[in-house]
Amino acid sequence: MTVPLSILDLAPIPSGGTAGDAVRNTVDLARRAESFGYRRYWLAEHHFAAGVASSAPAVLIGLVAAATSRIRVGSGAVQLGHQTPLAVVEQFGLLDAAHPGRIDLGLGRSGQRRAELTRAVSRPPAHEGGGGGRVVDGLLIPPPFDFSALLKVPHLAFQASLLQQPGARTPDFADQLDEVQAFLAGTYTSADGLAAHAVPGEGADVELWILGSSGGQSAQVAGERGLPFAANYHVSPSSVLEAVEAYREAFKPSAVLEEPYVVVSADAVVAGDEATARELAKPYGLWVRSIRTGQGAVPYPSPEEAGAHVWTEEDRRLVADRVDTQFVGDPETVADGLRVLQRVTGADELLITTITHDHADRVRSYELLAQAWH
């Protein structure tokens, strides 16, 4: 089955480039993606990363939607722990007012998820002892990454504190989602019966999505509310099958969906031949290393910069799950790999993220993939 392809963009800043370059590249790529036939174009939310310009997805969505005419544009995902449901609904209501019927509101957990991971630091990792991954019907499922060392980096907690008002508490994700839906429907009331209305936002024709990296609350809530779900193979490949299974098991038909609808993300780099694709993808491991050592995503290195890095065994272990599950090669090779991902996960749509140092190579990668896919 040939399913639609979509794009997840982080607005990457290449080494030697600026945030302005990244934003212009994002707008240009979105225009091209529309002509290539991609279904939707999502913008991620990341903070305190020198190599990523997607700190305000609603702003980028507005720029991209204004530069395109047909492709759906949305968030992958707004982190609800950093904003109130009302603020999110107002932002996306405004986007829908300007670009009706084209806006996706993807929601994810943030502060609540960090707290859970922090509590898990005291527990031994699930793959303690160096156990390997497994291959499921041709798809690599690597061992889970151990976040415990990363969560002990002092400045990460400091950065997280800057994303909320002092003393603020992140509510339960399910409760936040219920508030978002109530504001969109115009049915929000307080515990004592007072009504509140989001303008713009109430009645907005936005498509609501939940994004998740495991079989935890995000997958459960998406299923129970009958909403479409996006599972992250490119960020958390070890738990993608667990996530889609939990979502499907929890699914209940709703006014939105009669049956489960799953998007699965994948990281891919495509070029005219295998050797060129491998060269373009060379910086990816070094970039992932910068994230997992607590630096935050560095400006995306060039292949030459990546080639100068001296890799230790510890470095390689740190990024192995992400590097080993990146789809790299000529168009048919990558398309075949993505078909395996789609078949094993049962995905109804694939969400492709591609980062290269040179913008032209990134555009060409998406073009070649679209041609091989259809």
Rank of each mutant, 00 (worst) to 15 (best):
S54K: 08
G37E: 07
S302W: 01
R169C: 10
V310N: 12
D178P: 01
I355W: 00
L105G: 12
A157Q: 14
P142D: 10
A266E: 01
V334M: 01
L257K: 03
Y38I: 04
E34A: 00
A185K: 10
Q371M: 04
P228S: 05
S218Q: 08
F158H: 15
V235T: 12
S54T: 06
S148K: 04
R339V: 03
R364N: 07
Q326H: 13
S190F: 05
H99R: 10
A11G: 06
E45N: 10
V310M: 08
K252I: 03
P331V: 08
A266W: 09
T293L: 04
A50F: 00
V235K: 07
A277S: 09
E34M: 02
W209K: 11
V262R: 04
H47M: 01
P253R: 00
L211M: 07
E34D: 04
T68D: 04
A182I: 04
V27M: 11
D28T: 12
R39D: 11
E242G: 01
G329N: 09
T84H: 12
G16T: 05
K152I: 00
L95I: 08
L368N: 03
L177W: 07
L177M: 15
A320K: 14
A230L: 09
D315R: 07
A277I: 03
L341A: 09
A33L: 02
K252G: 12
H99F: 15
A49Q: 15
V180R: 07
D192N: 11
D172E: 14
L280K: 13
R134G: 06
A370I: 05
A168N: 07
S236F: 03
Q181Y: 10
S161V: 01
P144F: 03
G101W: 07
E332L: 09
S238P: 02
R248M: 02
A56Q: 13
A97S: 15
P124E: 10
R316Y: 02
V3A: 11
Q295I: 02
D192I: 11
V340L: 06
R134Q: 14
G132I: 07
G329A: 07
G201T: 05
V199A: 14
L117Q: 15
E314S: 14
R289Y: 00
A204E: 08
A149L: 02
S6L: 10
F173L: 14
R109N: 10
A53T: 06
Q181M: 14
E279L: 11
A320G: 03
A281K: 10
D348P: 03
K252Y: 00
R114K: 12
V52A: 10
L151F: 14
T18L: 05
R339I: 08
V73P: 13
Y188D: 07
L43M: 14
V264G: 10
V288S: 10
Y233E: 04
V244A: 12
L286Q: 14
L29P: 12
E179K: 14
A58T: 13
T293E: 13
